[in-house]
Design a protein around this nucleic acid. Sequence first.
DNA 1: AAAAAATATTGATCTAGCGCAAATTTTTAC
DNA 2: GTAAAAATTTGCGCTAGATCAATATTTTTT
Lengths: 238, 238
Amino acid sequence: MIMNRIQSITAAGTDRLLPSDVSALSPFADLSDAQIDELMRLATVHRVARDETFFDEGERADNFYILLDGFLRVGRTTQDGDQVIMLHISSGQMFGIAKAFDCARYTMTARAASDGVALSWPSELWDRFIQDYPGFKAAARVALGHRMKEMQDRVVSLATARVERRIAQAILRLMKQAGKATEDGIEIDFPLTRQDISDMTGTTLHSVSRCMSGWQRRGIVRSERRRVVVCEPEALPA
Amino acid sequence: MIMNRIQSITAAGTDRLLPSDVSALSPFADLSDAQIDELMRLATVHRVARDETFFDEGERADNFYILLDGFLRVGRTTQDGDQVIMLHISSGQMFGIAKAFDCARYTMTARAASDGVALSWPSELWDRFIQDYPGFKAAARVALGHRMKEMQDRVVSLATARVERRIAQAILRLMKQAGKATEDGIEIDFPLTRQDISDMTGTTLHSVSRCMSGWQRRGIVRSERRRVVVCEPEALPA
DNA sequence: AAAAAATATTGATCTAGCGCAAATTTTTAC
DNA sequence: GTAAAAATTTGCGCTAGATCAATATTTTTT
């Protein structure tokens, strides 16, 4: 599994990646080993620990990224300090692609939800990559589509659903994007606090805690500190 | 003024548009008259009355559009009938561009907020247009960027701001996108009901009405049936 | 001209869930 | 090993704003 390979690299701290490490990821699909080598030569490897940021909102969008391993939270902070988490990025996905919509600066902050690895390239290469590498172009479109859909769903959720349902929807979304099967059920594969969930749903950590406690009592989820396992997805009131 | 020209065409119901009608719109920038002629030959002209739809969410995305005149509301309807307005489109902007993010179906419904005119082309032509016409490509990116920003702002607003502020922000946004100077102040240039505003802000028409009445009493806005004029933008609690 | 349909206003309840507070458990730092 | 910090749970009171309801006004239909 590539996943394991990259994770081991993360641990080891090596700075070299092999074509076989990434060739299964969609942006690198349909590329020859030589082409991947070329891409790798131009890339910068980023290893980040949980909570470190790749870039902050407002910064000049000098690079675009592909996440190889880990999970990312992308969000904004309002003037009065409210944190809003807009979407999550899982491995294989592009992020920081301001170039794709003609934007000179990042509009959000990308922060690692777990330790992770990403590659980046200077934004000047964007157009060339899109032109030369079909997989890249396709991945960019998919990333845009994914993002668009996610944002739309969130707007609908925030505009129409009450707290319990919003939380349920957020957890189901994460489950689909970052779910890992365990004996108990499907676990969300990165640390996730009540506060994080409330930042995704526009509520308070208190309300999230109450909701989760209720679901736990009914056997719908199992959740300890920073860990969320969904036992009965169908029973969530989404 | 192109605007007037197109509006007169709208009224007259003619089905022919001249290059001079559209050449000032960004997607047609940097094109020769011959190229524009070619685009026009391939285009279908749509005239819609207020409240008619261009397409509905879920439909196959067979065409993409450019709005020549009028204003559009783009939104969704939830299972339990709640209307959510996601964004507004003003003239010169592309819409229905599911192709740009690799989507086979429209994810939202586009409905005319005022009488309007649009052009459409079959989705198959998208890639060719993007390749051949630089202005088109640029306009597509701008449309994506605009949409992204708008959705992000809406998520932040919905997640963090109380009703009064959300309404204020929505009105300011519309004012910027569709504002027309009058002696009283800046008028939002299409019919806009309390219900419409509540569908944009995730609240009820009652709350919107109370807000607007308050602002009117303080001279911040002037508003009658379907008409909103912002007199003191700075005084809105956004 | 009358009736029906949209739109808007305003008042009177009622409650979801926020804000505050206090206690508990888990993790990290020293 | 102890202290400090981070994360969670739970209770209680309060209020923003939804819901229900009634009326007014404007527009459209017949």
